[in-house]
């Protein structure tokens, strides 16, 4: 992604770059790196306030607690489901944005990024109005006589999936569209000339070439789902406990900071490992 270095490094320019970067790096060191280290230290305590440790008690507690393991499993299946749905549902929109010469393309682009900029609380409340017991969907179903009493559409895993897909789809669409826009159409045209059907052409030429965009979008969507709090708690109505809710519980309700820290570190590590494996898998598939 970075352009080739513009010039040979010379000490004076290196010094200038260091001076320009100093405030940014200092800020990130203080509010990103240092907190992460403090959290790591906190996770190695048995209790807080208390001796500094190191002890792996909180990690052992997490890994033997069926409730927390279940929450972790639910979090990652939610993230995987949301990522997959965003990729499948978002790909055609990205295709439209990158390839269509329609005069509506710019409007579709605005329609894609606008939700991204509307407050997440507003969007989640919109789903409440749509899916609630007296919401639009139930009103329509009752009006059409399809059901006799309101369906409980909220408070399930799938209502959270719906809300998260809605929130995160724009990230996926923009990532895929950016890569699709850079692919030379000549490849697909060559394949078509050589007799490839449109489907085969897509599967063996365009899709592998655009896999970078799907990968980048997946990483963003997956990470944002893993760390999400408001959509699961609001649309799940307390029935879909994910890691973010569990960490909030540990930190605020139980005031167990070492426990919350251990959960946080494990969540970051697991996310990193899963994404690493996913990256390897995609690279192998694209090279095939």
């Amino acid at each position: 992604m970075l352009p080739p270095p513009p010039r040979r490094a010379d000490p004076r320019r290196t010094f200038a770059a260091a001076a320009l970067l100093a405030p940014g790096v200092l800020l990130l060191a203080l509010i990103l790196v240092w907190p992460f280290l403090v959290m790591l230290g906190m996770s190695l305590r048995e209790r807080f306030p208390g001796p500094i440790g190191p002890s792996f008690a909180k990690y052992a507690e997490f890994l033997t607690d069926p409730y927390l393991l279940n929450v972790a499993l639910r979090t990652f299946s939610l993230a995987a489901t949301v990522t997959l749905l965003c990729a499948v549902l978002g790909y055609p929109i990205a295709w439209f944005l990158a390839r269509s010469r329609s005069r509506w393309a710019h409007l579709v682009f605005l329609g894609t990024i606008f939700p991204l900029l509307v407050s997440i609380v507003v969007r989640t409340m919109g789903w409440t109005i749509l899916l609630g017991n007296e919401g639009l969907v139930n009103a329509a179903l009752l009006g059409l006589g399809l059901v006799t009493e309101p369906l409980r559409l909220m408070q399930g895993f799938w209502s959270v999936v719906l809300g998260m897909v809605h929130v995160l789809m724009p990230f996926m669409v923009l990532s895929i569209a950016a890569v699709l826009g850079r692919i030379d159409v000549a490849y697909a045209e060559a394949a078509a000339t050589l007799g490839a059907t449109p489907l085969r052409n897509f599967l063996s030429v365009t899709l592998p070439l655009s896999v970078q965009g799907v990968a980048a979008g997946s990483v963003i969507v997956f990470c944002l789902t893993v760390g999400a709090f408001i959509t699961p708690i609001w649309l799940g109505r307390g029935h879909v406990t994910v890691m973010a809710i569990a960490i909030h519980e540990q930190m605020v309700t139980l005031v167990d900071w070492p426990g919350g820290a251990a959960s946080g570190i494990l969540l970051s590590l697991a996310t990193l490992l899963l994404l690493g494996g996913y990256g390897l898998l995609l690279r192998r598939w694209a090279r095939r």
Partner: peptide, 27 residues
């Protein structure tokens, strides 16, 4: 500018985008 570690710094600057928000918040 070109200097050693430029790519790593770029990653550091983008890291808050993908770091699980709840973990960053707690930390």
């Amino acid at each position: 500018y070109s200097f050693p570690g430029r790519g790593a710094l770029m990653t550091l600057f983008m890291a808050p985008l993908v770091f699980p928000a709840i973990v960053l918040a707690a930390a």
